[in-house]
């Protein structure tokens, strides 16, 4: 039989509120179920914690999470402070998008800057120039300084095998560390957010979403994203099978030819470790077709930080990474 990863057709089924045929009408399709679950999780955070923060980078998962938070508390504003760890190597168009969004929503944004830590010697640049692993210390400091007791992240279990074992409410000790053996069992939809002073809980409302679900939701809800998620011309060179943009922190080495290619980004992180993929997808519908046909995972295709070792994410998570 033929099976594909997901159907490209848009999902339009909505409950029909007519009393006739109720038995079949009162069913939720996939996106509605994921949306309902995420809103439930966001409201649990509001109900169980005093000082929640929502990690917002301008990346697609955090944009979707923020849009869900707007829906969860409407017509009141979402109760979370927005928090961004700026590596100093972020894409300028993503930072501009971040700031526009913050302004549009009238939200409060706290930025923790890796550059500050490098400038005053609290952190040192890695030999490979990658700054993603350096985000952990500024993140933990910002959580402590803001006295945040819950930190909402856009991580998804389909991204990576260590994340596949993550709970929706994930307790972190006073050092921000994740201990896979200390995770609380999660039953039904009862999330237990109790924690000791100094500890905090990471919460992942998009745990059960896949990359394709996120894109389908972006399409259905017409959610705006930074432009680099869609196809555009960019100067790139090839390194380790990935297309790296020419920029202040990513210069071609000898033998790496620069060319202008039509590309887009599947993930948006630090410029020094995030690569582009060749693409003609100019809108969400085209991206959905492309992702459905892709033979590579988004992190495997474009993230150098996950290629450091077989357990790169597991190790970073244990230290307190997102």
């Amino acid at each position: 039989m033929s099976t594909v990863i997901a159907p490209p057709e848009p999902i339009t089924t909505r409950p029909d509120h007519a009393p006739e045929g109720e038995r079949t009408a009162y069913r939720l399709d996939l996106l509605d179920r994921l949306e309902s679950e995420a809103i439930h999780i966001l409201r649990e955070v509001a109900g169980q914690f005093e000082r929640p923060a929502l990690l917002f980078s301008g990346g697609k998962d955090s944009v979707v999470m923020l849009e869900l938070a707007v829906r969860a508390f409407y017509p009141a504003p979402p109760p979370s402070t927005l928090l961004h760890v700026d590596t100093g190597h972020n894409f300028p168009e993503v930072l501009a998008f971040r700031d526009e969004t913050v302004q549009r929503l009238g939200a409060r944004l706290v930025v923790a800057s890796v550059q500050d830590y490098l400038d005053d010697g609290r952190l040192r640049e890695r030999p490979d120039g990658t700054r993603n692993p350096l985000q952990t210390v500024p993140l933990l400091d910002a959580i402590a300084a803001g006295r945040f007791d819950a930190v909402l992240g856009g991580g998804r279990r389909d991204e990576e095998k260590a994340r596949a074992k993550e709970r929706i409410f994930s307790i972190r000790d006073a050092f921000g560390a994740w201990d896979p053996r200390r995770q609380r069992p999660e039953l039904w939809d009862l999330y237990n957010g109790r924690h000791a002073p100094g500890e905090h809980v990471r919460v992942f409302p998009l745990s059960n979403w896949t990359e394709l679900d996120v894109w389908r939701y972006i399409e259905r809800e017409r959610i705006a994203l930074p432009e680099l998620y869609y196809a555009h011309e960019r100067e790139v060179f090839e390194r380790d099978g990935m297309l790296v943009a020419v920029g202040p922190w990513s210069q071609p080495r000898r033998g790496e030819a620069v060319e202008v290619r039509r590309v887009r980004y599947r993930t948006v992180g630090d410029m020094s470790c995030t690569a582009a993929v060749p693409s003609d997808a100019g809108d969400a519908a085209a991206v959905i077709r492309e992702v459905a046909g892709s033979r590579l995972t988004e992190r495997g295709a474009t993230r150098a930080d996950d290629r450091l070792s077989e357990a790169a994410m597991e190790d970073r998570k244990k230290e307190g990474y997102f």
Partner: peptide
């Protein structure tokens, strides 16, 4: 417990 995701048409 680990969670896996797959889908068909």
């Amino acid at each position: 417990v680990a969670y896996r995701y797959f889908s068909t048409t």
